[in-house]
């Protein structure tokens, strides 16, 4: 094996610059929000906060961290997300794997009925009636079960699985392994990067989505963090609301508290990917098969 070139060449420099520039550009919104969260409300109203705080103070964070309902929402959302992600992944794997098998009769039919639901859905009203009849309105269940399967994610997994060399499974099959066995002992360990990716997708989806919470949950103890955040911010977006409600506009949160809440609600989920990166290990398929 030839020795790999070490040292920092011209190309390395180029790639570093490209990535560095991209990072600098994309980091701006985040810096802006952080700056606002550490500024005084007046400075923000004046529009003088851009990438650096003005009137530096940590009042906003103090307010957020002492707000028990926010802390509770954080804990609750974390638990919900973990629960959801685990169940969702199980469901997705159980669905994707059989659909990769050409020999399965009805494969195309099953795939189609799932893809169909990506496009057609009944809407909130029938869903509400269904959930009401199942007695899951206003429970944690309604945030876990209904949205459990993302066909989009399933298709990604399916394509990935179909890209694995068939010879791996074949040898195991010929040695007498059952489908379940192959799936759990061979396929899944080889699929760590894609599984990690889909875990991330599901977790982020559950974390960020609040439309369903809005419609199906009225108990504020079951509000997810993003919903609380959304209510905090959106109340002020609509100046028509203010006008309807007369010249006694409802009290709104200070700008810096809004920004601190955004950071509070975002940092946990942002940290998931770095944590998952250990699964993005190369060469898993290497050497598994010796023809």
């Amino acid at each position: 094996m030839k020795k790999m070139k070490t040292g920092f060449g011209k190309l390395d420099f180029l790639f570093t610059v490209i990535v560095g520039a991209a990072v600098l550009v994309t980091i701006i919104p985040f810096l802006n929000v952080i700056a606002m969260s550490l500024s005084s409300p007046e400075a923000i109203t004046r529009g003088s906060v851009w990438l650096w705080p003005a009137g530096l103070n940590a009042e906003a964070y103090k307010a957020v961290f002492t707000d028990l309902s926010m802390i509770w929402a954080l804990v609750y959302t974390i638990i919900l997300t973990i629960f959801y992600t685990v169940l969702a992944m199980i469901l997705t794997v159980l669905l994707a794997y059989p659909l990769t098998k050409n020999r399965l009769r009805g494969r195309k039919f099953f795939t189609f009925i799932f893809v169909f639901t990506m496009y057609f859905s009944g809407g909130v009203i029938p869903e509400y009636i269904l959930f009401k009849n199942l007695k899951i309105i206003n429970t944690m269940t309604v945030l876990v079960i209904p949205g459990l399967l993302s066909v989009y994610n399933m298709i990604i997994l399916k394509s990935f699985l179909m890209g694995l060399p068939a010879s791996i499974e074949e040898s195991a099959y010929l040695d007498g392994a059952s489908d379940f066995c192959i799936l759990f002992k061979i396929i899944l360990p080889l699929s760590k990067p894609i599984l990690a990716t889909l875990c991330l997708f599901y977790a982020v989806f559950r974390w960020n989505t609040f439309q369903d919470v809005l419609y199906f949950v009225t108990n504020s103890k079951l509000y997810t963090l993003q919903l609380k955040l959304n209510m905090l911010i959106n109340i002020t977006q609509s100046s028509e609301l203010t006008q309807f409600e007369g010249a006694n506009p409802t009290r709104i949160a200070a700008e810096n508290i809004k920004s601190a809440s955004i950071i509070f609600a975002t940092v946990p989920i942002v940290l998931v990917y770095p944590w998952l990166q250990k699964y993005f290990v190369t060469g898993m398929t290497l050497g598994a098969v010796k023809e």
Binding site: Y128, K132, T218, M231
Partner: peptide, 19 residues
């Protein structure tokens, strides 16, 4: 008391009434 989110009031009302 039944809570309805302020900025979704009409949609939520429609859903509740339909159900």
């Amino acid at each position: 008391f039944v809570s309805v989110p302020r900025d979704q009031e009409i949609q939520q009302l429609n859903v509740l009434m339909s159900a």
